[in-house]
Amino acid sequence: MTETTDAPRPIGLGDAAPNFTARSTKGQLALGDYRGRWLVFFSHPADFTPVCTTEFIAFAKRQPDFDKLECSLLGLSVDSLYSHLAWVRAIEAHFGVAIGFPIVEDPSMAVGRAYGMIDATSQDSAAVRATYIIDPDGIVRAINIYPHTVGRSVDEVLRTVAALQQTADGKRLTPEGWQPGEAFLAPPSEQLMEGDDLGWFCRTIDAA
């Protein structure tokens, strides 16, 4: 049985992530269990599918990098817990990769609909490949949604988590293509942005 709080609309950046309680491959859990840590909460269309399998292998292999950022991983699909467990065993048997993070079952699509992962009129989740990055206070800080035909980039998810952590205080920005260890941009003041002078754009802050 999966229980969830209803969301009046699809959640957006800055919204509190809807709480839920559900069964997973690691036992019963609630979203609130992750308070105090960053969380990457991602849905996949179905177990035993080629793109999803490559994604889960990639997430599992990079879990130590997420751990260094004090960021947990949590997967979800409409498949049953028994399907999740069989899929996890098959991945380990065929690829030698253990999936160390939980995968939540959502057969009623209650969680997916609360998050806007699944359209309210949809009868399945075939078009959903959503990622939500949630901060330690339970606030959604980034959302990424792909069609079922396009796989995610785990490197980009890691980069986004690192960027969000480094800019959380609002005192610096990350430029295009920023990678951990590189310099930041300084937030421009209104005075500096007046006129046509782009000198404010060149103000950088050294990496911590």
Rank of each mutant, 00 (worst) to 15 (best):
Y34D: 04
L31S: 05
G177Q: 05
G96S: 12
E105G: 09
D15N: 08
Y146Q: 14
T174C: 15
V111T: 00
A208P: 15
Q165V: 09
F48Y: 05
K26Q: 15
S24P: 07
A126M: 10
T5R: 10
A16N: 01
L185F: 13
L13C: 06
R152G: 03
D6V: 11
R89Q: 15
A162N: 02
E190S: 13
D196H: 11
Q179S: 12
R129Y: 08
L173C: 13
E92R: 14
Q179H: 12
T131P: 06
Y115N: 02
D79S: 09
S108Q: 12
Y146G: 00
D47W: 02
A30H: 06
V104M: 09
P18Y: 06
D206M: 03
L85T: 14
E182S: 13
M193C: 13
D15C: 11
A86I: 08
T131H: 10
G138W: 05
A186S: 13
F66N: 04
A90T: 12
G75T: 10
D196G: 08
M1E: 10
K61G: 05
A22S: 13
A120N: 12
G27N: 01
T53V: 07
A207K: 03
N144P: 00
R203Q: 15
L164N: 05
V104A: 01
G96P: 12
R203D: 08
A162C: 02
Q191I: 11
T2E: 09
F20K: 02
V97G: 05
T121P: 00
L164Q: 04
N19H: 05
P187W: 11
C52S: 11
A93G: 08
W87H: 00
D15L: 09
G75R: 05
P10T: 04
K26T: 06
A162I: 09
G195R: 05
S83L: 07
K61N: 13
L13K: 12
E156I: 01
V104L: 08
S125Y: 01
P175A: 06
D155C: 01
Q123K: 11
L164D: 04
Q166I: 07
L81G: 06
T25P: 07
T149H: 06
D67V: 15
A207G: 13
E156V: 01
V40H: 00
L192A: 15
Y34C: 06
I99E: 09
Q63T: 14
A93E: 15
E92P: 04
I143R: 05
A58E: 13
A208Y: 03
S189D: 10
E55L: 11
P187K: 03
V128K: 01
V88F: 04
T204V: 13
A60W: 06
K68N: 11
V150W: 00
W178R: 02
T149N: 07
A86R: 03
S83P: 06
A93I: 02
R152N: 04
P188R: 02
H94S: 14
A30T: 14
Q123P: 00
G138D: 02
A127D: 12
S125H: 06
G96T: 11
E70D: 15
A46W: 00
W178P: 02
M109T: 07
